[in-house]
Amino acid sequence: MKLDLVHDIQAAYRKTLASMSRPGLIKNLRDQADKVAMEIDCFNSTLVLALMLFDTEVTFKICSEHEAEMAKLINQLTYAKATELESADYILILHDSKPGDLEKAFQMARSGDLLDPHKGATLIIETDVVCNDRNLTLKGPGIEKENYMDVTLTDQWVDWREEKNSEYPLGIDLIFTDRENNILCLPRTTQIIKQVVG
């Protein structure tokens, strides 16, 4: 069945909204992502997010081995314009990105200015597994006491994010997607505490 650009995208949006307003809440986009009938170099859920949010007013950057093909495809599907890291509204870091790409994206991404903090970029990061294992503890708006999360990335991203978001309300927001089409959102307000081993 084909992805319904009205109803499937609406359903995916409500899940994304729930996940963004309750950081650490994992939502699954399988029902929508399975309908993507295309051979693509990114997870289906990532493409669903792009179809949900991108249009001609949006700029994006893709970090991937297949950057050129993916940028062309997303441009053709959504009319969004590919640009550089420092000016992109959305940065897609795909599972086949180079090792240094994630750090560079965290460093270079636009974090808005005090007049317009909403112009901070959103990073969509593909990772093998997104789960609620108790590796990282989350606190902040949207979380009653604390939530837990883990992703298959080295924990260094937590430090990069903390540095980037150190001057709230400036900062970047993250959406993780995984191979099972799970998504987990981290708005800039969420504080992450690493589990201390010992």
């Binding site: 650009l5 009205v6 995208i9 609406q10 949006y13 994304t16 909204l17 963004m20 307003s21 949900m52 949010l53 991108f54 249009d55 007013e57 949006v58 903090p117 909403h118 901070g120 959103t122 708006p141 949207g142 309300p169 927001d173 708005p187 800039r188 307000t189």
Partner: peptide, 23 residues
């Protein structure tokens, strides 16, 4: 759908910055 997308983008940013008015 274009109008919905624009409002959805603004809403997600509004949640990320509680109390800030997103145009």
């Amino acid at each position: 759908e274009g109008s919905k997308r624009e409002i959805r983008r603004a809403t997600l940013k509004a949640i990320a910055i509680p109390g800030y008015q997103v145009p």
